[in-house]
Computed example of a mutant assay.
Amino acid sequence: MSVSTCPSRSALNRDEQHRDAQGLDAADRAIVLATQAGLPLVPDPWGAVGREVGMSGAEVLERMQAMQARGVVRRVAAVPNHYRLGYVANGMTVWDVDDAHVARLGREVAAIEGVSHCYRRPRHLPHWPYNLFAMLHGRSREEVERQAAVLCERLGEACRDHRILYSSRILKKTGLRLAGSRPGAAWTEPERRG
């Protein structure tokens, strides 16, 4: 499991003094650079970040909370590695749901245990009739198919068709990253991620 901090892409208050184009002062920017790849997995992560950027853990936490309140940081969350937890069958289920019912049914599907993502997407007729997507995770394809059967039952007659698209490989997922070096880092070039 890693702990991720995710900078927000929302518009920032450009009127505050001493803030750069991203709406960060030097101390906030140092904190974002030190945490954007994740918090250290130690008993006092805020203290560890504080030592890296030259401030107390309490000050780091206070600044992170202020950045979150301003919308600069969207969230701080634990991100479990579901593969290491044994959930190796990952299926994006796609559903052709009657547009008159998709909003209500989408909310119901999103609340079902085992659904990690659920969202509406536009159809691309005639080749892609699916407008509701729900990600399922299981220890086997059979488990994902049982979960999909529960979804199908919930969608009822409003659902005309569905498919399960299984993951074939893991893609590295990251949030927005600021260019620059971590405080105290040995490199001077901006970090490059692919």
Rank of each mutant, 00 (worst) to 15 (best):
V3F: 08
T5M: 15
T5Q: 09
P7R: 02
P7G: 08
R9W: 09
A11H: 02
E16L: 10
E16D: 07
H18F: 14
R19A: 14
L24Y: 04
D25F: 10
D25L: 06
A26D: 09
D28Y: 07
D28K: 00
R29N: 00
R29L: 03
A34G: 08
T35M: 02
L39T: 13
P40E: 10
P40N: 12
L41N: 11
V42I: 03
V42A: 11
P45Y: 02
P45L: 04
W46P: 03
W46F: 00
G47D: 09
G50T: 09
R51Q: 13
R51Y: 10
E52M: 02
E52Q: 15
G54F: 02
E59Y: 07
L61Q: 14
E62F: 00
Q65S: 03
A66N: 05
Q68E: 14
A69R: 05
R70F: 01
V72H: 09
V73Q: 10
R74A: 01
A78H: 03
V79C: 12
V79K: 06
P80I: 01
N81C: 00
H82W: 14
Y83M: 10
Y83Q: 11
R84T: 02
R84W: 11
L85A: 02
G86P: 05
V88L: 00
V88I: 09
A89M: 11
N90M: 11
N90I: 12
V94F: 06
D96F: 06
D99H: 12
D99L: 13
A100F: 00
H101Q: 14
A103Y: 07
R104H: 11
L105G: 06
L105K: 08
G106I: 00
G106N: 07
G106L: 04
R107E: 15
E108M: 03
A111G: 05
A111I: 05
E113W: 05
V115C: 14
S116H: 07
H117D: 05
H117T: 14
C118V: 07
C118K: 01
C118Y: 01
Y119W: 06
R121E: 07
R121H: 04
H124F: 10
H124V: 00
L125S: 05
P126S: 10
P129L: 04
Y130K: 10
L132I: 11
F133C: 05
A134R: 04
M135T: 09
M135Q: 12
L136E: 01
H137I: 03
G138T: 03
E143C: 06
E145T: 15
A149E: 14
A149G: 13
A149S: 14
C152E: 13
C152H: 14
E153R: 08
R154G: 13
E157K: 07
A158V: 11
C159V: 04
D161E: 07
H162K: 09
R163P: 00
R163E: 14
L165D: 13
L165Q: 13
Y166F: 12
S167C: 12
L171H: 05
K173G: 04
K173S: 04
T174V: 15
R177Q: 12
A179L: 09
R182N: 00
P183T: 15
W187C: 06
T188A: 10
R193H: 13
R193Y: 12
